[in-house]
Simulated assay, not measured.
Amino acid sequence: MDLGLNGKTALVLGAAGGLGSAIARTLVREGARVVLGDIDRAALDRSVSAITPQGGEAFGLEWDLANLQDINPKIEAIEAHWGPVDILVNNTGGPPPTTAFGQDPALWNKSFQNMVLSVIAITDRVLPVMRQRKWGRIITSTSSGIVAPIANLGISNALRLSLVGWSKTLAREIASDGVTANIIVPGRIATDRIKFLDEQKAKREGRAPDQVAAESTASIPMGRYGEPQEYANVVAFLASECSSYVTGSVIRVDGGLIPSI
């Protein structure tokens, strides 16, 4: 299937991590020109180095999403290099594991700026040209906690859910301009983030990480953690011409983990 991504410019945030890196590689493989944004310069360089030998077009931008003043210069650099952004993949790191109760307001504020306000501000920056050109894709990666809140991820559950309301509202506002906005929800995908969360749970409960991972795996109907590539494949579809009538949706990539309809 031709996804129609040749020559499209994509910006993938959080692109040095497991999910972001897989998404960037997949979009490049489908013919897109990809800008990888991440705060971790060394990991970002490794991700770009893994892509360019394939013959694809990619470059990295060291990007601290907490610094909203950086948004305009970063987008201007992309536009000067390849032109306007056609595809935006909003993928941010998660906050530390916490209960919902008793957290410092400063932590809530910092997490909101990193995970929510940055996403909204970057999207607002690239949307006008998408609407003018009558084509664009806004894809926002969240967490299964937006459907079934995850214990000890209180801040993540709350803030990621706010992005769902934002994206659904936005989708109606921009649909007639040929721009789509969708939420994608990972279940237990085998990334460093999931490994970290398993290790933290094991530490809290005085168990071995392998025990926690085995218990988690047993709760997944497919009987395994997902691969980052499987998640990236769905993102690539949502970024494509083929998804032109899909907007305002919440797409799960979870191996059947979330039990609700």
Rank of each mutant, 00 (worst) to 15 (best):
A42V: 14
G55V: 11
R188Q: 10
P228W: 06
T191N: 10
I194H: 05
D2T: 08
L127E: 04
G256S: 11
N182G: 08
R41M: 06
D192S: 15
S47D: 07
N72T: 13
R41V: 12
R33L: 07
I23Y: 05
I189R: 02
K74R: 12
Q113S: 12
A24F: 09
G206Q: 12
T180M: 10
P95N: 04
G145M: 07
G60H: 03
S249D: 12
P221C: 07
W82F: 13
L117I: 14
A15D: 05
A10W: 02
A239E: 04
T217C: 14
L27A: 04
L197Y: 10
G14W: 08
E173N: 07
V48P: 01
L44V: 10
A66T: 15
G31I: 11
S143W: 04
S243I: 07
L5G: 08
S156N: 14
V116T: 13
N67C: 08
T191D: 11
W135K: 05
T52V: 15
G248F: 05
E30W: 00
V250W: 04
D254V: 07
G178M: 10
I122H: 00
A121T: 14
P53M: 02
G4Q: 11
A171H: 04
G256A: 09
V48L: 07
I174M: 12
A80T: 11
A148V: 13
V253Y: 03
M115I: 15
Y245H: 14
L11V: 09
R131Y: 00
P53L: 02
Q69H: 08
Q211P: 00
A50L: 11
T180G: 13
W108T: 05
P209M: 14
S141E: 11
G93M: 11
V89A: 06
R207Q: 15
I184N: 01
E79D: 13
A15C: 10
L36Q: 07
I251K: 00
Y225N: 05
L127P: 03
E62F: 00
P53A: 03
A32H: 04
G165N: 13
D177S: 15
V12Y: 04
